[in-house]
Design a protein around this nucleic acid. Structure first.
Lengths: 338, 338
DNA sequence: TATTAATGTCGAAGCGCTTCGACGAACCGG
DNA sequence: CCGGTTCGTCGAAGCGCTTCGACATTAATA
């Protein structure tokens, strides 16, 4: 491999000049720059990342912690990941992927200065990674909202507002008996932030609107979905509006409803909280509140890069939920409220 | 951040001694080692990855190219990824994730010595990345089989054998009219290796067994699956055995078959080629040939690490397919052949 | 007991890059 | 026409680590 000195020699300049051509941190005359550039691609020179990291204390790598936990939809995780990776490249950064949610990986990459910054997904209310990340010298952005962000920046869909929006939508259409088919029990047991926030929004709005909301946890399997639907139909047969917040279970919930004779979009209104592509690839185009996973990933990178470039106060960005009406919801027994 | 010199000073030894304690490359007496180790965790010392990379020309990072292409099942990709990441950690390596299939990313990370080795997924017959990887100084393992591996190691399920096995299984059960519902047209257009190999195996065995195999490409959408099923039933109504090689379409294929009145496991035998968990999470437990994605990922890492530790000739490892009978297949019109 | 071989530790020379201060040359206004 | 800028370039000092050769010690061998 050619080194910067080889390039300097070939171009007849000093190494620092080559470095400045590369970084643009000092003015270089056009002819010199041209000579250097010619030498660079004649030799096929690539700066050594480690040497660069050592000298500049910048790695141009960010870490992405994307725990592959049971109960969370893998395609949705990947949408976040894709957003992060894509946007990181726009900032000339690469992504180091950590799939275990252990704290050890975290301080390996931060302590060892392997990365310039951190993005962490799937944050729990009381996540052990948060204090560790807060103590690191690298800026961190959380996708999700812990109880105490400890000065870290956060970004997520405003699930609280999403919950309220979903209920309002159903109430406005005349539904008074509403249910949530939610995350798998494991997810709730972990106090995953987004699940709890949606439920809070739901309940708050239900109280305000004076309607009932029955909550049913649901495994992301055909069986789990069937059970959830069955117990719902058994314990709250008057239900006419269902909110589904579980990408994996959604198709099976719809299938079970069909088997049980409930016609979605007529007898039963269903609002999904999920990425748009998931909403559209069901048997019926679903009325849904979009979970803009890829965008959130991109915003996370934007935020973390901003903090890298200049000291900035931490901020929390909650994206406003957008509900799109499609064919899975209709007016309820009380008729449209206008 | 504490440096190795700080540790040396604190322990009253030279820096090289600290280094040798860390690497174990030279014998160090127990008391010295103890003093050094105490100093290390008193200071919270972490070696600087860049400095280490520069001095040792080892980064302890491997690159994983996992292009997120249309038509390939995201959960399946993630199983490969999970296998790679997990196993890499066993070798004390982290994973740099590249999701674009462009060659530029490839030589950024190899040329810049950002990684020690490479694992590339989703290999096409004539993949432009292959020659580039072959020219890199880092060892590379391909998950998939290009036309010309150019001295690189490869690992994959033996799709050729899988195709033959699937046909043999159906023929033995008395089916003579067999069909494949395969990958999406985009995947075939890209000449993705595994899709073509499965089809080759299928056809070879069909010729040998004297049966017909109708091949139907299939989008991984409800519509795509329905269309595939419909045209199959229209153009080859005598079909009694179907092989499905398309994780995304599988549930929709089964749904459509049900709608069309074909009882899977009785009228119609279906063999899936997919990961076991996918086979088990269908409406019926599917007879399937396992695609051991996570294992393949792990093997890829094992192979690449072996080449890293000692110069070894390249090898191609094709995992033997295993068919597990479950409830989606049964004897056909000609009855069991024994 | 003299000789050789481990064993344990140190010092110093890099690894390839960035960056700071310095310096000559060209350029400005007064 | 001269002091003060600005521009373009250079040299050298690190960044924090690994690793090689050297050098004492101590243990094993004859």
């Amino acid at each position: 491999m050619a080194t910067i000195d080889d390039v300097a020699k070939a171009a007849g300049v000093s190494t620092s000049t080559v470095s400045y051509v590369l970084s643009g941190k000092r003015p270089i005359s056009a002819p010199t720059r041209a000579r250097v550039e010619r030498a660079i691609d004649k030799l096929g020179y690539r700066p050594h990342a480690g040497a660069r990291a050592l000298a500049s204390s910048r790695t141009n790598v960010i870490a992405l912690m994307a725990p592959l936990r049971v109960g969370v939809s893998v395609p949705v995780i990947m949408q976040f990941v894709a957003g992060v990776v894509t946007r990181a490249r726009d900032f000339n950064h690469d992504v180091l992927l950590l799939t275990q949610d252990d704290v050890s990986g975290l301080d390996r990459v931060t302590g060892g200065s392997m990365v310039d910054a951190l993005v962490m997904m799937d944050i729990e209310a009381d996540d052990p990674r948060v204090p560790v990340a807060a103590a690191a010298k690298q800026p961190t952005v959380l996708i999700g909202l812990p109880q105490d962000p400890e000065g870290l920046s956060c970004v997520d869909l405003d699930f609280d507002a999403a919950g309220r929006l979903a209920v309002r939508h159903l109430v406005k259409a005349g539904h008074t008996d509403i249910a949530l088919i939610g995350s798998p029990p494991e997810v709730l047991r972990r106090h995953t932030a987004f699940a709890e926030r949606l439920m809070r929004g739901l309940r708050d709005q239900a109280k305000i609107s004076g309607v009932t909301v029955k909550v049913e946890a649901c495994d992301s399997t055909p069986t789990g979905a069937s059970e959830a639907v069955d117990t719902l139909l058994a314990t709250a047969p008057e239900t006419t509006g269902i909110i589904v917040h579980n990408e994996g279970a959604l198709p099976h919930v719809l299938a079970r409803l069909a088997e049980r004779g409930a016609v979605v979009g007529t007898d039963m209104s269903v609002v999904a909280v999920c990425p748009t592509d998931v909403a559209l690839s069901q048997r019926i185009p679903m009325t849904s509140i979009d979970l803009p996973a890829e965008d959130i990933g991109k915003v996370a990178v934007d935020m973390v890069m901003a903090r890298l470039e200049s000291e900035q106060p931490s901020e929390t960005r909650l994206l406003a939920p957008v509900l799109t009406e499609r064919e899975s919801s209709a007016d309820g027994p009380a008729g449209p409220l206008d």
